[in-house]
């Protein structure tokens, strides 16, 4: 009787979604029996159908397909890594070549720059000589200018002395 009451309660709980796995296993086992109390006979077919698993057969080649898929993915990844490694290797070679070509060009440019610097020094010397020449010219010009000023002053004094003498002689 107690068992029957429990079953009734369990069925109610089952349709309310409140049963746990153990209680559901108990119900499944109970309704799978041939001789159950008459009160549950009308529910037996439904409960058996509810607990009856659907029959889905797994394709035999699925597992093999999955292994192949994973193997293929792993292989692709390895190839990708290898390509990535090769890419770095080629980049390193390109970098070395660039440096190998660039260095002689760079040093050649420095040498040319030094030559340019030497030419400039020659020019500098010429400029200095020209400056010296100009300075000398300037000095001589100034000297000439001073002499001219002195001559003008002497001439002015002579003129003044002559005028004075003329005024005295012709009152």
């Amino acid at each position: 009787m107690k068992n029957t009451v429990n079953i009734k309660e369990l069925i109610t709980l089952y349709f309310e979604g409140k049963t746990n796995t153990q209680q559901e296993s108990f119900l499944k086992e109970f309704f799978s029996q041939e001789n159950i109390p008459e009160a549950y006979k009308k529910e037996q077919l439904l409960m058996q159908a509810l607990f009856q698993k659907d029959d889905i057969s797994i394709p035999t080649d699925l597992e093999q397909k999955l292994h192949s898929t994973i193997n293929s993915l792993a292989l692709q990844e390895k190839q990708h890594k290898l390509f990535a490694f090769n890419k770095w290797k080629w980049m390193a070679v390109a970098a070395i070549l660039t440096i190998a070509i660039s260095l002689p060009l760079y040093f050649n440019q420095i040498t040319q720059h030094d030559e340019t610097a030497q030419i400039s020094q020659v020019d500098k010397n010429k400029i200095q000589e020209a400056q010296k020449a100009l300075l000398l010219l300037s000095k001589n010009y100034n000297k000439g200018l001073e002499q001219l000023t002195m001559s003008q002053e002497t001439l002015s004094e002579s003129t003044r002395a002559l005028n004075k003498h003329l005024i005295i002689s012709n009152p």
Partner: peptide, 30 residues
């Protein structure tokens, strides 16, 4: 890999087609 039978059954119940269910399972593994 051991989950594949359960995954296949679930996929089959959704899509109701064996080939599509297999594709779905493979896609999950990818």
């Amino acid at each position: 890999i051991p989950y594949h039978p359960k995954l296949y059954r679930i996929a089959f119940r959704f899509v109701q087609d064996s080939d599509v269910a297999s594709d779905m399972v493979q896609e999950v593994y990818i």
